[in-house]
Design a protein around this nucleic acid. Structure first.
Lengths: 143, 143
DNA sequence: TATTGTTATACTCTATAACTATA
DNA sequence: TATAGTTATAGAGTATAACAATA
């Protein structure tokens, strides 16, 4: 009797993506440590916008955690002078978060490092990179 | 004067991959919650092998955390009857971790859910899925 | 009444340093 | 001496429930 574990090409592609993500997990931890941030602090900084103020509740949504958790995360970033709270003019329940100059600078450093494609991408030709991009765009569109 | 932010196809592909990873982060948190695990516990369970015993120190390497942290993680999994410690025969300093029946079952459930490609993959034809798999394999090889 | 954010609480995660047992 | 793992400690991350201020 045959156990027929037929793996489709999509399954195999997904496995490769998960292995890539696992490796990237280590890279992110390294970047965070290098810049003196914990991983959650790094994500929080990335979730903030360059010019535009962000309500705390939005942050909870992006980070997929409880609002009470955001309070502590922002407390610690604010204690380091990376972000400031400011009451929203139109609804004084809402606290807007704005990056300080130091916060903008650190966030940019994080973004620059995260944005660097891993070494493996150098193995692709220009045409292959375009193919990969288009296929991933199709996957993203279909979600 | 031109600011020439020339994004290569590789950069764009990498951005799409990071967006996919960000979405997947929410999926993983959902699976963990659904199965009554914290995300670190889920990763720990995945890092264990089906038949083969795993030394605690290996786990620290895979999870990229300190050995003292592994002690606590394993304590909690063991308290739930998912894993057991057993001294290695050839070197009694080493503790081998083995999954219990419940642990194997839960690990399989995690693996089954994580292994499901996201909905977006349905948008690819068979040929496209093969193309994507081959391109990702090339990237993985080049790392 | 409903919503935004905080506080109180309890637990988990995490690293550092000191320790035990074994090699 | 060196290594595998634990313990002690301290701090960060996390959710739940109760609360304050505002809408």
């Amino acid at each position: 009797m045959e156990t027929a574990t037929t793996r489709t090409a999509a399954d195999e592609a997904w496995t490769l993506l998960r292995e890539l993500a696992m490796a990237q997990r280590g890279v992110v931890m390294g970047i965070a440590a290098e810049l003196g941030l914990s991983p959650p602090q790094l994500f929080t900084l990335q979730a903030l916008k360059e010019g535009e103020p962000v309500p705390m509740s939005d942050l909870a949504g992006v980070l997929r955690c409880d609002a009470s958790n955001v309070t502590g995360l922002v407390d610690r970033l604010a204690a380091r002078g990376l972000v400031e709270r400011r009451p929203a003019a139109h609804d004084r329940r809402i606290r807007h978060l704005i990056l300080t100059d130091a916060g903008r600078q650190l966030r940019a450093a994080v973004g620059e490092r995260l944005g660097r494609p891993p070494a493996g991408f150098d193995a692709l030709s220009e045409a292959e990179a375009r193919q990969l991009r288009d296929l991933l765009a199709k996957v993203a569109d279909g979600s």
